[in-house]
Design a protein around this nucleic acid. Structure first.
Length: 216
DNA sequence: CACATGATCGCCT
DNA sequence: GGCGATCATGTGG
């Protein structure tokens, strides 16, 4: 049996190699992550999620996100203040990473928001690689993590520590951003309908059903 | 300790 | 649009 061990998958896809220095990308200030989770979800559309591996940088432009609003949000892992070892990174200061494992085979990456103790976060649902990479390579939260080689070993990492995982502001004009309900949270009752998903209307890499790709 | 389920994906119909 | 894969995690006994 040649069963593939998911935990060995740490390597970014070589097609995502890029140079943040040459592009003169700037990081977000800490404060940006502390104030408003919904605003972070909307405004990191177009931002670059970047990772250093060896002496190279790999990155992708975020085109789809979802906000998860902590203890008041039945779809959030921190609903009703739930606090377990897995969710602990959600309680850190905004700007940290929260990664979890789902469905026995996929990882999902979130950017933690709000001050320490308030467990809100933004799920990174889809991204585009540098010019010429296939639009499906990072389309969906599981594929996004697979393409960048992100696993739970990165959960709790501070994106503003000057280390190998970072978030950079996008370049040029802001994207045309659509809004919809979140995907895959039907169990969450009323919260399942909250308009907390954001996406770049002009991107081929946005995931989910077609009916959620055109809304406002 | 046993069990149920999920912030998904790809393949099948 | 439906379903199986596959297992960490949380919950309850």
């Amino acid at each position: 049996m040649t069963r593939r061990r998911i935990s060995e998958d740490f390597c970014p896809d070589p097609r995502l190699c890029f140079d943040p220095q040459a592009l003169e990308l700037e990081e977000f200030p800490r404060e940006f992550f502390l104030i408003d989770t919904v605003r972070v979800a909307r405004e990191i559309i177009g931002a670059w999620f970047a990772r250093r591996h060896g002496n190279r940088w790999y990155g992708a432009r975020i085109v789809e996100t979802e906000a998860y609003l902590g203890s008041a949000d039945a779809a959030a892992h921190s609903w009703k203040g739930r606090r377990t070892p897995r969710v602990e990174p959600m309680y850190r200061e905004g700007g940290h990473l929260y990664v979890f494992f789902v469905y026995g085979m996929h990882y999902c990456a979130n950017v933690v928001t709000r001050p320490a103790g308030i467990a809100e976060a933004v799920l990174l649902r889809a991204a585009e690689g540098p010019e010429g990479t296939p639009s499906k390579l990072l389309s969906g939260p599981g594929r996004l993590c697979a393409a960048l080689g992100i696993t739970v070993s990165s959960s709790g990492f501070d994106l503003l520590s000057g280390g190998p995982l970072r978030l950079y502001r996008g370049l040029g004009r802001s994207a045309s951003v659509g809004v919809s309900q979140r995907i895959g949270v039907d169990y969450a009752g009323e919260a399942a309908h909250w308009p907390l998903r954001f996406f770049d209307r002009n991107s081929e890499a946005v995931s989910g059903p077609a009916r959620l790709k055109t809304s406002s």
